[in-house]
Design a binder for these strands. Structure first.
Lengths: 141, 141
DNA sequence: CACAATTGACTTGTATACAAGATAATCGCA
DNA sequence: TGCGATTATCTTGTATACAAGTCAATTGTG
């Protein structure tokens, strides 16, 4: 590989930065970050998950989850309630404010998806397939 | 978009995390991070760039560059020399140690590229094209 | 039942990433 | 030439990301 710009790791990393930056801009008016949006999106699907459940879905480790959850709780979008069955576990529940964000945030991110589809220029399906392959741990090594 | 896992921003972000993690593992024995490798790779091509030049190539802003350069300098892989022509500019030069890393680090990253090609499963060309499109600012909006 | 191993959440330390702002040096133009 | 605009770098503050380690609660096994 001659130039950095030809390394697949560089290409994927920079594409992620591009999209993340655009997501930040779309979400900023609602005072939510891209990762916080991802966490909320899982909770809109189903409430009451533990930090570990959520980290499993989002592929984030427990250290990162603690910070994300802290900020969502400080913003009053979710609340932690300790599980009476297993006192190690804190379950996460949406507040009314957290539920109210679903429609506007999904609309903002739908815009982003449409823009990305345009930017990708007709290669969106191949792109999705290739990325799902890269994210499939069993395909490595 | 129904699930987070179907958002293109999520797919790209997680693929970047996967590859970055693998790059970290490959580079860790040499005590270099993926971003530091990218910076060195540009300097192996041509020495004496400014922080702004390097940030332009790597698409990183000046705040991020300062930290990356600080750590490369602390590790004695590069050194800052102020430009006598323009005293605002610090030019970056490889040390002997920095030059000596080129062969082993490129070998490590060639391995990673090959593994990624396998993992991507025959969609590597479409993947590269789509990612270059996403990284082309003129294709957005 | 006792206790070693495991688990869930959190803490600490390091490294990107970027917005916003500070500062010093240089440039452009009247 | 003088001085406002621009530029290069660095600083500060916030938010991921992850390795490694702590601590309390729970589980599995003899």
């Amino acid at each position: 590989m001659d130039r950095v710009e030809d390394c697949i790791s560089f290409l994927v990393g920079k594409a992620a930065q591009q999209i993340t930056k655009r997501a930040r801009d779309k979400l900023a008016p609602h005072r939510v970050t891209p990762v916080q949006y991802a966490a909320l999106k899982v909770l809109w699907e189903r409430d009451g998950l533990s930090s570990a459940d959520l980290g499993g879905r989002l592929m984030l480790d427990s250290a990162t989850m603690t910070g994300v959850i802290d900020r969502l709780e400080t913003a009053s979008l979710i609340e932690r309630r300790s599980d009476p069955e297993d006192r190690r576990v804190h379950r996460l529940f949406l507040t009314e404010q957290g539920k109210a964000l679903q429609a506007p945030l999904d609309a903002a991110m739908d815009e982003l998806n449409a823009e990305a589809r345009t930017a990708a220029g007709g290669e969106m399906d191949a792109l999705s397939r290739a990325l799902r392959n890269l994210n499939d741990l069993s395909r490595w090594r």
